[in-house]
Amino acid sequence: MAKSESELTWKDIEVGCIATEPGSAARYKCGDWRSQRPTYDFNKCIKCGLCQIFCPEGCIYQNEKGHFEANMYYCKGCGICAKECPTKVITMVEEEETDVNKNGD
């Protein structure tokens, strides 16, 4: 399945909509309808990993500096990470249409 979802025609759909490629669901962009996004003040981060454990989307990864950060292709903006972070690293801010299009593509 080389085509992206938006390029698929009805003729490209596998019989019965069967997904023949394991893991292809990872391509599904579920972060395109969030209304808020997490922002970070990494100076306060103690790298405890609680945000990663609590994130219902499983989209928080450690970046090269060891800080925990959301992959915006998948983040749904629920704010659970911000609520759970013990040192208040994360602040949720209003999402903007343009940001959604810029990030995670």
Binding site: T9, C17, A19
Partner: peptide, 20 residues
């Protein structure tokens, strides 16, 4: 030969799936 059947069809493919 793993495959997934009966997956969900988001708005971007549902119409194509039904027409197929």
């Amino acid at each position: 030969k793993p495959l997934a059947m009966g997956d969900f069809g988001p708005p971007i493919v549902y119409t194509e799936a039904k027409w197929a």
